[in-house]
Design a protein around this nucleic acid. Sequence first.
RNA 1: GCCGGGAUAGCUCAGUCGGUAGAGCGACUGAUUCGUAAUCAGUAGGUCGCAGGUUCGAUUCCUGUUCCCGGCACCA
Length: 635
Amino acid sequence: MAIEITFPDGNVKAFDAPVTGMDIARGISPGLAKKAAVITVDGEQWDLSRPIDRNAAISIITRDKPEALEVIRHDAAHVLAQAVQELFPGTQITFGPATDVGFYYDFARDTPFTEADLEAIEQRMRDIVKRDLPITREVWAREAAIAHFEAQGESFKAEWIREGIGADEELTIYKQGDNWLDMCLGPHLPSTGKLGSAFKLIRVGGVYWRGDANNAQLQRIYGVCFANDDELKAYLKQVEEAEKRDHRKLAKQLDLFHQQEEAPGMVFWHPKGWAIWQAVEQYVRGVYRDSGYQEVRGPQIMDVSLWKKSGHWDNYHENMFFTESEKRTYAVKPMNCPGHVQIYNAGLHSYRDLPIRYAEFGGCHRNEPSGALHGIMRVRAFTQDDGHIFCTEAQVESEVTAFHRQAMKVYEDFGFTDLSIKIALRPDKRLGSDAVWDRAESALRAALRAAGVEWTELPGEGAFYGPKIEYHLKDSIGRAWQVGTMQVDFMMPERLGAEYVDEQSQRQHPVMLHRAIVGSMERFIGILIEHHAGSLPYWLSPVQAVVAPIVSDADGYAGEVTQALRQAGVRVQSDLRNEKINYKIREHATQKVPVIVVVGRKEAEERTVTLRLRGTEQQETLPLADAVRRLVDGV
RNA sequence: GCCGGGAUAGCUCAGUCGGUAGAGCGACUGAUUCGUAAUCAGUAGGUCGCAGGUUCGAUUCCUGUUCCCGGCACCA
């Protein structure tokens, strides 16, 4: 019986017996056989060594193709595992997948891996590559695999076969050479030599077996891996550049804020940092006003009974701060919504009043786990650009759609266009019936559909009171941070007794929408700093202009220029120090000031100024009045 | 919170195989008035994160602790 193989160009070739991808590649050209990484068989990636025993459409993927990269990285993980087991006998293997930029492998070993170990392991990996061990696929019986791993002392692998793999699933083993094997879905390269040299081990970190904090702690070794050395080099260069943008580093260099031991997870804003904050806050305040919100302000602490009623205490009391006075316990607010409900409840509302939109720059405290703290991106005291919309169920979709449009406009205004949008769906621990969750989730989907956007869904990640849309931004080294959110909540109004009177004079609970665009002001400013590498756009720059006289004879005129700009609303400083203009230019350029206003004797006599704009070396001399206008208009 | 690493002058960092520390920048003082990315000279500045222990002696070794960094878990 002949096997018909269809090539990508439509040609069909018949074979008398099962053939492997490698056979086919060799049949075409030795060069192709050398470059081949894997083969797709009817759209599915297979090993080149696996016999194709049926009619199939195939395509040989060479090593330089993007589709091959994941296979290469996955191979790197296995080579890493073999290297570790050769160097450190007794270390157990678990899992090791490819990642966006490389790979990792999780090991069980009592002794921690050190930096020096990483170097030795990487060397051994290169050695295994050099040995060019053939990688072969075998299908094993379930019991045989369990017996093998148990005999080897690989209890994690054995556990996974028992608990993680269905009895009817095929169990594949990959051998690297004769003496090492791992259980894996594959596919893999034909031999370790195909991995190449463009990989590097970068760090080791602790992880939990199967991602559960109740389980054993494993050690994860991370590596980066690319198809060739140039790509690896480019990647390492990019990481180096990204590290220079770290908001914690820039905050020190630019004197924006600091944090200290006595207030872990909290921020001391310096004048320049606070100027950025004010620019952001004033902008967002304008958004509130233009989109129909009324700004309000709730108390910072409220009796714990209110948080028990809302459900927050049950779900989050371990992460809340409490304070006591006169035998009463108060919670420092971790959210603004219960406060806003109190404001809503202070009056009687008609359906005609809805939607009612409250907004607040609400300061919240959450006792985040110490290991979660990260600069100003993840803190214990933060301020949300929070808002709550009280509306009818029929109004939800249009409110959510309007919010989405507004949010996207805000991100764009701050220079962000690369956002990912997610809907977090019902978690295991939640309030309310499935029917209510169905309605809430479909309301969010409908609104996003109406707005014409794409999203991904995160099952189990919603808030306990409702599902949410999340807007995610990436920081300079690729970590994603949630900024905005829109949550539909059918529960809180009922729990906290919010009502309105409907057309039939009946009391109803409104739907409550929780929403934020920048999210945490702290985090958003951190992302802004990294995104712009500290060179914030003119309108956000803490110091927009510095007036620098060349000689002290021009100090008086420099003072006049500074006054004129300040009165026009420009955030301006003067630099009258007894230093050369070169020195001043260098310093303010380093400080990323957008405009340096240079005045010498000539400018003082002619009542002009010379502007030097950030990022250029050009100078432009113009009359003072014109310069003021330029700076007011945003240069 | 868990695993690993770290903490030395305002900042960036060096150093002490145990004998109480050093550079550059910055600050201060003086000189210099110099037209677009660092003018010169001098001076001051540190209980080496904190608390115990070992030791004749600890910034160095040990223990604990706080905070920070990386990873995981968590993130209303």
